[in-house]
Computed example of a mutant assay.
Amino acid sequence: MSLAYLEHYTIRDYAAWDGDWELIQGAPYAMSPSPSISHQRLEQSIAAQLFDGLKQCLQCEVLSEVDWQIAEDTVVRPDILIACDIQGEKLTQTPELIVEVVSATSAKRDEQIKFELYQKEGVKTYVLAYPEHQVAKVYVLKEGRFIKAGDFVLQTYEFEVKGCKLAVDFSQVWRKLP
């Protein structure tokens, strides 16, 4: 099929849609009806540890399920992010850290499409958390490329965000998961 026939949507189109969507380089992606209990537990556990770690950092904050408007044709909604020096009610600057809780329905988008997008946009740390396997894969941006820092099951990983150090104890993250 010729590329001339592919539809290309913008933020204006996105704003008019019903339901939950992400828009990546003009292509719409439907989000799951709602996250599973395991997804919610994992998201809340990681967010709580990140929030605790940032208590002394006044310029950065942890946000969940907020739209990040990257371009006129790209809006994503990471599960968790840390952004600093936020201005206004719309997030338009690149987050320092993003966590995506990966499910079977989101794996391709999280592992490939968003991986490349976040890398290109300069996200400093990207975490893929897998509730089913109880492992988190942490990637750190070095010289414009994500380099894997490791797979974390029972270990603690220390993050640095704008000079603030915070840690996630992954042994605690998986405690409430089946």
Rank of each mutant, 00 (worst) to 15 (best):
A136Q: 15
D67A: 02
E143F: 03
A129V: 06
Y157D: 12
Y29T: 05
A48L: 10
R77Y: 01
R175K: 09
L81N: 14
P28S: 11
C164R: 04
D169L: 00
F170K: 07
D85F: 12
H39G: 07
H133D: 15
V102D: 13
Q69C: 09
Y130G: 14
Y29F: 11
I80A: 14
Q56E: 12
A83F: 07
R175Y: 03
W21I: 01
L166P: 01
Y130I: 12
P28H: 13
Y157C: 11
P33S: 00
G53K: 02
S36N: 04
Q69A: 12
Q93S: 13
L97P: 06
R145N: 15
I82L: 04
G53F: 00
Q56T: 02
L3V: 11
E22V: 00
Y157L: 10
Y29V: 00
Y126N: 01
D73C: 15
I82E: 10
E89R: 15
K176H: 06
V99N: 05
Q134I: 11
F152M: 12
A30F: 14
H133V: 15
D85K: 05
D67H: 06
S36H: 01
V75C: 03
L91T: 07
C164H: 05
G26M: 15
I82R: 10
R175A: 06
K137Q: 14
D169K: 00
